[in-house]
Design a binder for these strands. Structure first.
Lengths: 332, 332
DNA sequence: GAACTTAACGAAAGCGCTTGCAGTGTCTTA
DNA sequence: TAAGACACTGCAAGCGCTTTCGTTAAGTTC
């Protein structure tokens, strides 16, 4: 391994000067800079990131915890965050929590032991208190999709209530009256907020909330088919379903096809998230866009501003919007 | 920051003993171990990964370069690789090359400067020679989806030729004779191999290869619709299309719907990759499964065995298989 | 030309850890 | 009981870098 020592010897300056030339923290004579960079070039020198980090206690990297390294949600999130971080000449280290509290904790440990300068956290399992503790250790911490009052300007969420409202309103506007709603796990605040949005829209249109039109599903793939079947079996004149995410909508698609119900004609469906596949399934799914791109960008910008202690006004409640495609029948 | 020094003082042993207790490289008296771990617990000590890495020149982490942090291919790849790596108490650091040679090089640099113990590389832009050079620097390097003869037991590919053969054979077996093929970029070896598989199947069934049935598309989203339209416009009695990936198949779906051709009846389509959405589109797409899961697992196992210098017989040509769904009409 | 400022640099300490080496003390073995 | 073997431990060097501090040389001011 080529070290700074060899560079300094070849360039006939001290190690300190090489370091300074490299980092630009202090002034170095032009002639020496040239000598240094020539030597670096000639030797193919690459600074040892560990030694740098150890000596400076800065790691030039941002840690990110996501639920999973795969999937239509986390993918773009990581992608966009990395983009921004890279542009600032820093690096993003991503780990996944894989829906286990232990792994989430372990991942945060790992990232902190790597002395990340900042942290972007999308956690399912960690409690607010634990997040607060983490943010105390790593002040430049940004929390995604969770609102922790104590960390109010470090949280970036989307307005789930608005999203639920938009989806429902779209159905109502299209002339539907019996609008069902399949929620995610009601243990999750996202589900409850989206449901509240649904209720708000109903109220606005003067329609009574009817609990028999509600079913609790799951945001992941498990068991939604059965929920949809049972909902339809209730046979209470449903003409439209607001599925609280696109996964659930997918299950609804499958069940409708089982029952030979033509989506967009016999029944209408609205999803939530605007996952990549929502535009590939037929009929193309009308859904609420989850601004995951913006979230990635915002998270990265926010964490970088915290790291560099710059002023930055976070946009911490991102607005979803309706993507009107082909899965909703319009009566008017 | 709590350091090993403080732990050693509280436990009333030397730093060396703390280190040894922690790493188990050497024997430490039981009573001292207990004292050490009690002290660690009490102080909430976390070893500084940089100092560890610097001192030991081992980083306990594997670097991974992928094309993008998102998408149905790289997602599961990362996911499964991380799983395995974690189980060995190491960590995976993922960076993306984003289809730019510069970024790929930069990412590898970054990973190497982080002293990763091993490297898993899925590169689009780097030349074989460059890969060889990288593998020289980091001996525990595994190359994905590329066969570099000099690194033969560090390459993990799938058998694209077999895949192309299986797709075509399925169509032929189902009674189709005029089978078109839309390839990916022919600059990519994958495309050429899949095409060769197509030809092999034709030969086996005694059918003459007809260049007018071939069109060159792209593995990504760009411009495939137009290619499909032009192919159909040639009006040469095509009853089936082998699309060299699911993306292309998606474009074919769109064009067929434009032209009111019912897939699985008027025309048959086989894809390649078995992307997540292929089972959600209607009719469900018959496609060739790309064993991405196995690839992730195999890559991780391989790189770990290289890191620990253990014997491991790589399965470096993974077998794709046909997933028979609803997009192919069967004449028999 | 003395006194001061400033630019540029080198020496060296130190970041927190691992590890080779040299003990020390205990246990076997003949 | 001497001597070798062994288990355990501490000392201290050193990993490759950053950064403080002091020094030198050059420039500035009156």
């Amino acid at each position: 391994m080529i070290t700074i020592k060899e560079v300094s010897e070849l360039a006939q300056v001290s190690q300190a000067t090489v370091s300074r030339a490299l980092n630009g923290h202090s002034t170095v004579k032009e002639i020496n800079k040239i000598k240094v960079f020539e030597a670096i070039e000639k030797l193919g020198y690459k600074p040892n990131a560990f030694a740098q980090a150890l000596a400076s206690s800065r790691s030039n990297s941002i840690g990110m915890l996501v639920g999973s390294l795969e999937g239509p949600f986390y993918g773009p999130l990581m992608h966009n965050a990395e983009d921004i971080v890279r542009k600032k000449n820093m690096h993003l280290i991503v780990t996944s929590g894989q829906e286990s509290k232990e792994k989430e904790t372990d991942s945060i440990r790992f990232l902190q032991s790597k002395q990340v300068d900042g942290l972007i956290i999308h956690s399912d399992m960690l409690s607010d208190d634990e997040l607060i503790k983490i943010a105390k250790n790593t002040p430049a911490t940004v929390i995604l999709n969770r609102y922790v009052p104590e960390l109010s300007n470090q949280c970036i969420c989307i307005d789930n209530e608005l999203g639920g409202y938009l989806a429902t309103k779209h159905l109502l506007e299209s002339g539907h009256i019996k609008v069902a709603c399949i929620t995610g796990q009601l243990s999750k605040i996202d589900s409850r907020d989206r449901l509240q949005g649904y209720r708000n829209a109903l109220t606005e249109y003067g329609i009574q909330y009817d609990a028999s039109l509600i079913a609790e599903g799951r945001f992941d793939h498990d068991g939604n088919h059965e929920k949809v079947r049972r909902l339809l079996d209730r046979d209470n004149g449903i003409t439209a379903i607001f599925c609280q995410n696109d996964n659930i909508a997918l299950a609804a698609y499958d069940v409708c096809s089982e029952r030979e119900l033509t989506i967009g004609k016999d029944i209408s469906i609205v999803g939530f998230d605007n996952d990549t596949y929502s535009q590939h399934i037929r009929p193309r799914l009308t859904t609420v866009n989850f601004p995951v791109l913006e979230m990635g960008v915002e998270a990265a910008n926010c964490v970088l501003s915290l790291v560099h202690k710059e002023e930055y006004s976070v946009n911490n409640k991102l607005a979803p919007e309706l993507i009107d495609r082909d899965s909703v029948k319009k009566f008017n």
